[in-house]
Design a protein around this nucleic acid. Sequence first.
DNA 1: TCCATAATCAACTAGAAAGTTAATTAACTA
DNA 2: TAGTTAATTAACTTTCTAGTTGATTATGGA
Lengths: 115, 115
Amino acid sequence: MPTDDLSVTFAALADPTRRAILARLADGEATVNELAAPFEMSLQAISKHLKVLERAGLISRSREAQWRPCRLETEPLETATAWIEQYRDLARDRLDRLDQEIRKITQKKEGHDHE
Amino acid sequence: MPTDDLSVTFAALADPTRRAILARLADGEATVNELAAPFEMSLQAISKHLKVLERAGLISRSREAQWRPCRLETEPLETATAWIEQYRDLARDRLDRLDQEIRKITQKKEGHDHE
DNA sequence: TCCATAATCAACTAGAAAGTTAATTAACTA
DNA sequence: TAGTTAATTAACTTTCTAGTTGATTATGGA
C-alpha cells in the first residue's frame, strides 16, 4: 500500500461510505453515532472508516464527555484538487496547441484549394 | 471493492505509479514500453496499472501496428474535482457563516464593554 | 457504586490489489 | 516461414481492505 500523502488521500476518497461521511460533515460537526446512523453497517465499521479519514487528515476529532465529534478538514482536499487540476490543465493546453496546429494546416490547405 | 465511477476514479489515482503515468501522458501519447521505462517494476505490472487507468476512463488506447499508444482522458478528472470542490466549498461557506456569527457576538460584547 | 452510553480495540474472514514469472497473441521484418 | 518486438493473459503469492462479532475503555448519571 502506498503511504505518500496524495495516495492516502485518494484512497480515503475511494469509498462511497467515506465520501458520504465527508458530505455529511460539510454540514457541520457530528458524532460517530450520528455519522453511522444512515448506514446499514456496524458502528465498528464506521469507526474504522473514520480512522481512515483521520489518517488522511480529512477529518479531525475532539472530545466532549464520551462523544468524539468529527469535523471536516479541507487541506487534503486542496492538495488533491491541485494535483488533478495541474495535469488536467497541462493536457488541456497541449490539446489547444494541437488544435491550433491543425487549424493552421487546414487554413493553408483551404487557401491553396481556392487559388 | 466499490464499483461506482467516483470510487473507481479515486482508487485509480491512489497509486504513485499510476499518477506518474498520468503525469507523463499529460505531455502527450506514449506506448506501454515508453510508460514503463522510468519504473523498476515489470512491464506486466505496468500493463495492469494501465488496465486500472483504462477501466477508470482516465486513459484510452488506440492501436498502431504492434504498439498501443495511451492517451490521457480528462473527463473523470473533471468529475473528481467537481466532487471535491463541492464539499470543500460547502465547508468553506459554513465556516464563513460561523465566522460572521462570532464577529457579530464579539462586536456586541465589545460595544457593551465600552458603554 | 452500579449501570447506561459512546466509542474503540482485538481477532478473525472473505475478497481485492499489486506484484512476480511464464506462456500467449499480434504485428512487423528478413 | 522464422524470428523479433510489443503487449497481454494466466497462474500464483503476498499483503491490504472492509466487514463481522465480542470484549474493553471512558465518561456521565442514578
